[in-house]
């Protein structure tokens, strides 16, 4: 019964991961990260239902809080990068290297 939810969670996570790896637009990459987080939340909630306790749900709340904070900071960074470089491509922001 819960298997469908888990499969959906795995699919969402895979889509998010591939998106992070292949997309260049920082906003899209960021959204893919959010997708991965929500895939995890879905898995947590599903397991909570399956096990019959509340641990997974509690952690899902934590993840949401962290994700909200992350969105604030992450978007701020992306906006700053866009302002200085007129580009939101993650490949352009490659100065921190050897």
């Amino acid at each position: 019964m819960t298997t469908h939810y888990l499969v959906l969670s795995a699919l969402l996570f895979a889509i998010g991961a591939i998106g992070v790896l292949v997309r260049r637009n920082a906003i899209v990459v960021f959204m893919c990260v959010e997708l991965m987080l929500n895939a995890c939340n879905l898995a947590f909630v599903t397991f909570a239902r399956q096990q019959g306790n509340l641990d997974g749900q509690i952690i899902a709340f934590f993840v949401m809080v962290v994700a909200a904070a992350e969105v604030v900071i992450g978007l701020a960074i992306i906006v700053m990068i866009f302002r200085t470089r007129r580009s939101a491509s993650v490949d352009d922001a490659n100065l921190l290297k050897y």
């Binding site: 992070v20 790896l21 292949v22 993650v90 490659n94 290297k97 050897y98």
Partner: peptide, 17 residues
């Protein structure tokens, strides 16, 4: 070894994955 540090976020993400 330092050549690994390319500066591309996706390569870091790939290694994390």
């Amino acid at each position: 070894l330092r050549r690994i540090q390319t500066g591309y976020v996706r390569s870091y993400a790939l290694s994390i994955l």
